[in-house]
Simulated assay, not measured.
Amino acid sequence: MDAQAYGRESDRRQSEIQHDLPRLLDRAARGAGMDRAEWQIQRKGDEQLAVRPLDGTEPRLVDDYVRHLAAELRRYNAQRVPEARMRLRAVIHQGLVELAENGFAGSAVVATARLLNAHQLYGALAAHSGADLALLLSDDVFRSVVAGGHTTLTTDDFTRVTVQVKEYEATAWLRVPGAGASPAASSEYDVEETRRPATGEVSREKAAGRESAVETEAGGARGISHEYRSGNVNVTHMYGSVDARGAVFGFGSAGG
């Protein structure tokens, strides 16, 4: 994790970020049923490198933890003026790590650092000014966890990019939680024409989703329907906490 534009902040704001960042990360982990006290964490100002064992809960890290982190950032930033928002770049990678005298060692650590400096992460936050978080998964994590069907996410929730930082070059998968794709977003991410793993279809991917088209009733033409139908309304009231992980909510009328 790394806080965006930290170096441009005042001394007082930098101290505030260093105070608030670990607390946000801790709350997100607790919300996902994880305990960061069990992780090895290397702290560096606005940045944290956390190492955790491969224990079978990797899908929860990619899915639940990231979702709770996005929610924590949203609540945190809602109480602040735009100039005081905290926006994070995040990377998840896996591999062998050694505990060294001054931190962590290993090619997996180097790869994680390179991914965190990918210009596609900076471009994603620039393209989505309302987003609080941009995430990159290494190709290994993406294929084993997301493409393997172990999360509520799908391959279409991510955009394939090629990261080139110093001597490092690799495929990675980009996601901006909660952000809709803008028509011009792909060029800002340096998105390449790629092959979707799930369908084999070659297409130019959007950054955080794709434009959807629906059949309109007038002549069957393709387009976006903005018609509101209020003939049939069903209302469901929920009280207290609701665990809706994996749920799908639909809104519409009985007539279509």
Rank of each mutant, 00 (worst) to 15 (best):
M1K: 04
A3M: 06
Y6G: 01
Y6S: 06
G7I: 00
G7N: 09
D11V: 10
Q14T: 00
H19V: 06
D20V: 14
D20M: 12
L21C: 01
L21H: 03
L21T: 02
P22Q: 07
L24W: 13
D26A: 11
R30A: 08
G31I: 02
G31S: 13
M34L: 15
Q40I: 00
E47Q: 14
E47F: 03
L49W: 13
D55R: 09
T57A: 10
E58D: 04
P59M: 00
R60Y: 05
D63V: 08
R67T: 14
L69D: 03
A70Q: 10
L73K: 12
R74D: 15
R75P: 12
R75L: 13
R80L: 05
M86P: 01
L88T: 07
R89F: 11
V91Q: 04
I92N: 02
I92D: 02
L99K: 14
L99I: 05
F104H: 06
A105E: 08
A105H: 13
G106W: 02
A108P: 09
A111N: 05
A113D: 14
A113S: 14
R114H: 13
L116N: 04
L116G: 01
A118Q: 09
G123R: 02
A126M: 01
A127S: 10
A127F: 01
H128D: 02
G130A: 06
G130Y: 15
A131P: 01
D132G: 13
L135E: 02
L135H: 01
S144A: 10
V145N: 00
A147V: 03
A147S: 08
G148N: 06
H150P: 00
T151Q: 02
T154Y: 04
T155K: 06
D156H: 12
D157F: 07
D157S: 08
T159H: 05
V161E: 04
Q164D: 12
K166W: 12
E167K: 12
Y168E: 09
E169Q: 15
W173N: 01
L174W: 05
P177A: 04
G178P: 00
A181I: 11
A181N: 12
A184T: 05
A185S: 14
A185C: 14
S186C: 11
V191P: 15
E192N: 09
T194C: 04
R195E: 11
R195I: 12
R196A: 09
P197Q: 05
A198Y: 07
A198V: 13
T199C: 02
G200H: 10
E201V: 01
V202D: 11
V202Q: 07
S203G: 03
R204P: 09
R204K: 12
K206Y: 14
A208I: 06
A208M: 11
E211T: 08
S212P: 06
E215S: 12
E215H: 14
E215V: 15
T216H: 09
E217H: 14
A218V: 05
G219Q: 04
A221E: 13
A221F: 13
R222P: 15
G223Q: 03
H226W: 14
H226A: 11
H226N: 03
E227S: 01
N232K: 08
V233S: 07
N234P: 02
H237P: 05
M238T: 10
M238N: 09
Y239H: 15
G240Q: 07
V242D: 01
D243Q: 08
D243Y: 11
D243W: 09
D243G: 00
A244K: 08
G246P: 00
V248C: 02
F249S: 08
G250Y: 14
G250N: 15
G252M: 10
S253V: 07
A254N: 04
G255Q: 15
